[in-house]
Design a protein around this nucleic acid. Structure first.
Lengths: 255, 255
DNA sequence: CGGGTAGTTGATGGTCATCAAGGGGGGTGG
DNA sequence: CCACCCCCCTTGATGACCATCAACTACCCG
């Protein structure tokens, strides 16, 4: 139950959010607009969106949403990766998701954030104040519809993750994780030999899958020895046997 | 890994949905309108909502949403309780939530349902066709806003459940479950001596908490022996020491 | 070259799953 | 009305999977 010693270093990092470089708020040139909720807005009206957004870049390890803090802002990730997590008072951590390009964070109804978020790669996002977003949403009802779609999809993903956490073995969890990463990184399903990038550490993967670092590492090794995957480095994996991994992730394989 | 023998009986039940008694679609007299998304609609316009809804009552054990089937309908529960779950091919089951009065089901973006739903108490709901709901939503944008609020709240709950499944002990899970039930059943927080009704079986609780029947049962006994709860019957619990349970659920207590 | 961090591998133990048997309550049929 | 049965639940004995503890390697950067 005390598998949190390795968080000590990170925990010491400043929890407070300071945002250094404010880049120009030019939605027109945003390279992730086509995949984000902003695509609901016509390009000739983009300036109204841009007026409400503050574009910011932060570095890995920087926490930009802290659980329990007032939910004053909404974030639309435009590049990089962040981990979303919740903590227990004794330090146990559960990562509930990884947010990347196009993801939206902070749709809290309550006054305070229910989770924390920290960059794991150099991260860029558009930030909206609560009021600013409200204005944008009332100006562009279509965007609200998009948000509902996004939220629905996230609920489906959350249910899938509950199935993983509640009922899958360590091996099945890792296989599911690698497949979902591959899907997110946008390659065609069922294709083998696909290269997947792992921006997160073993510790992050463990906290996402409800396991320990050691168990994650052991199962990486095992999948490798069985030929299902190959490890170019600690953060680059090749899915050699896609179908085998799918079978595994669905729980068909007994061992 | 084979903790699913006890599902055999339920699995044999018909998966197909047949809806017996169509009750009159009178939203005006609906006693759960004030707490559901429908409250977004003015009472003098309720007839337009009623026109799109089919009110139905089904009995315990009846499955009304089946994972993988075309997501043709949306359901608004008005009374009773249903369990929402996902299955692995070998029968392992994860219950992702219990839906009660006021809850909304079937907000699928994809063509097919991502989960199944089955009544565990006599259940009444309003059913909307996909098209019917679309009409209602375009007529009443305020209702769409409500749906977004509901979805956001469910996302928060889902994250909480992931924390439970990934990082809490069996004891902590059960304590958390009892407290969340008490909250749902609408009593004031922190009050001790509250009576909670458990409409679901031990098997359902186990599948919700990612445990087995036996572990759930053992931990009920243990909480009882420690005086934290009292069991009037298998489906009625009294929370004797609310604060103790909260401490436990948050992981403060080591044993 | 040295220190620190991340990852791997091994040995051991604990929590919970599995296997097994017994108890209790509600409903049906005799 | 009682007996029986069935299902659900409880309790006990054993075992497996994964966590924990510990040592070691690889790699990065100063």
């Amino acid at each position: 139950m005390n598998n949190f010693a390795h968080y000590a270093a990170q925990a010491r990092r400043p929890g407070l959010v300071v945002e250094p470089g404010h880049l120009p708020s030019i939605c027109d040139n945003c390279d992730s607009r086509d995949i984000s909720v902003c695509s609901a807005i016509d390009s000739h009206e983009l300036h109204r969106l841009a007026a409400a957004a503050v574009v910011t870049q932060i570095e890995p390890g920087r926490c930009f949403i802290a659980e329990g803090e007032p939910a004053d802002n909404f974030y639309n990730i435009t590049s990089g990766t962040a981990k979303i997590y919740k903590l227990l008072p004794d330090g146990r951590r559960q990562i509930t998701g990884f947010a990347t390009r196009g993801d939206f964070l902070g749709l809290a109804v309550s006054q305070n954030y229910a989770f924390s978020a920290e960059a794991i790669e150099s991260l860029r996002y558009c930030r909206f104040s609560r009021q600013g977003l409200r204005t944008v949403l009332s100006d562009f009802p279509e965007m609200e519809r998009r948000l509902l779609t996004v939220a629905s999809n996230e609920l489906v993903a959350a249910q899938e993750q509950m199935l993983l956490l509640g009922r899958k073995t360590a091996r099945e969890r890792l296989a599911s994780f690698l497949l979902s990463l591959a899907l997110k990184q946008g390659d065609c399903p069922h294709q083998s030999g696909v290269r997947v990038h792992l921006p997160m550490t073993r510790g992050d993967i463990a906290d996402y899958l409800g396991l320990t670092i050691e168990t994650v590492s052991r199962n990486f090794t095992r999948l490798k020895n069985e030929g299902l995957i190959a490890l170019q480095s600690t953060d680059a994996v090749t899915l050699n046997d896609r179908d085998g991994l799918v079978q595994l992730a669905e729980g068909y394989c007994s061992e």
